[in-house]
């Protein structure tokens, strides 16, 4: 599917809230199966994969007790689950029922070795791209762990250099995006690893980041970055121009509503307070966008998934004026 020439951006309304504390506790990544939704959680309330469905029902756990610092999750077309563990330097492959099918990865800094593998993404061929944090690079592997490619590998803040990358994404054209965590920027590379562009700098203004944790790209080429310690997600167009930000608009999830209805004191206390903060994101760890332009945000500190859905109309070249060099005040 080719990208449209341009878009009429109609809006990005809030779509859905999923999960609750003690079910989707401290989510760090999310993936989708036929009917199941898989949420990777990490922390004192459990480091494992929680399975829920679109009805927000709790369907159990996978991989409990197997992970120390699980960081990234991928779900393939057979619903096998790939989980990176940045303490063990491994990628574990499990069936949808949680049976371990394979574990690969070894610690080190040679090509193919890993030092804190964090985010994961599939490329168009179904290979796995891994953010290799302490080695300041991104590596590409086959699904069974054969090393294919290394991008980066030099610590620094120059073009193509990285400082503890966290998030990684591959778009449908094969470009690779890295949330270059300690440099407060996102870098874009060609599939061959050539530097293309950089987005952002340190700060809390528009287009600025405080330790970006993840990045994803939709089929229009729009780029989403979870701006971790600024408690928001920022959206950029394919050229890296800031478009808008998401600070959270959650309502009660279905499971959360059921929980509160069973608790009289909680019901009363909510009547005694200001509820505005309940909408907001808290330290979002992962943003993912699907083929239906639904934007999923792992709202780490609030133990839930916030979902927005893009409304945009695709435009052909004949429907929109050509690019302009100068801004104008006069419009008819």
């Amino acid at each position: 599917m080719a990208r449209p020439y341009a878009l009429l951006r109609s809006g990005f309304p809030y779509y859905l809230t999923m999960g609750q504390r003690r079910v989707t506790s401290n989510p760090v990544d999310i993936g989708f199966g036929e009917e199941n939704v898989y949420v990777l959680t990490r922390g004192g309330l459990g480091s494992e994969v929680r399975v829920i469905n679109w009805e927000d029902e709790n369907l159990g756990l996978r991989g409990s007790g197997s992970f120390t610092w699980p960081a990234g999750l991928l779900v393939d077309e057979d619903e096998n689950l790939y989980v990176s563990d940045e303490a063990k330097n491994t990628i574990t492959v499990m069936s949808k029922d949680g049976d371990v099918l394979d574990t690969w990865g070894e610690p080190g800094s040679d090509h193919g070795q890993l030092d804190r593998p964090s985010a994961l993404d599939f490329d168009a061929q179904g290979n796995i791209v891994v953010s290799d944090t302490i080695n300041n690079r991104v590596q590409r592997f086959t699904r069974d762990g054969k090393h294919l490619q290394t991008i980066g590998g030099v610590q620094g803040s120059g073009e193509g250099e990285m400082n503890m990358p966290w998030g990684v994404a591959v778009d449908e054209l094969g470009f690779v995006y890295v949330s270059d965590w300690r440099n407060d920027r996102v870098q874009k590379f060609t599939g061959e690893g050539e530097f293309v562009m950089s987005i952002g700098s340190s700060g809390s203004g528009k287009g600025e980041f405080n330790r970006p944790s993840s990045v994803d790209v939709d089929a229009h080429g729009d780029i989403y970055v979870s701006d971790w310690l600024n408690d928001r997600v920022q959206m950029f167009n394919a050229d890296g121009r800031f478009i808008e930000q998401f600070i959270g608009d959650a309502n009660l999830s279905k499971s959360g509503r059921e929980y509160i209805l069973a608790n009289q004191v909680t019901l009363r206390l909510r009547e005694m307070t200001d509820l505005e903060p309940t909408r907001r994101l808290s330290a979002p760890c992962r943003v993912r966008v699907d083929s239906e332009f639904r934007l999923f945000i792992c709202d780490f500190g609030q133990h839930r998934i916030q979902v927005y859905k893009k409304e945009a109309y695709e435009l052909s070249e004949s429907q929109i004026a050509p690019p302009m060099r100068n801004p104008i005040l006069f419009t008819t």
């Binding site: 504390r21 009660l252 959360g256 909680t266 206390l269 903060p277 808290s282 133990h303």
Partner: peptide
């Protein structure tokens, strides 16, 4: 003090 939003079903305020 102001009543904090109760902990469950999400996080602390």
């Amino acid at each position: 003090f102001t009543q904090p939003i109760p902990l469950y079903p999400f996080g602390h305020y």
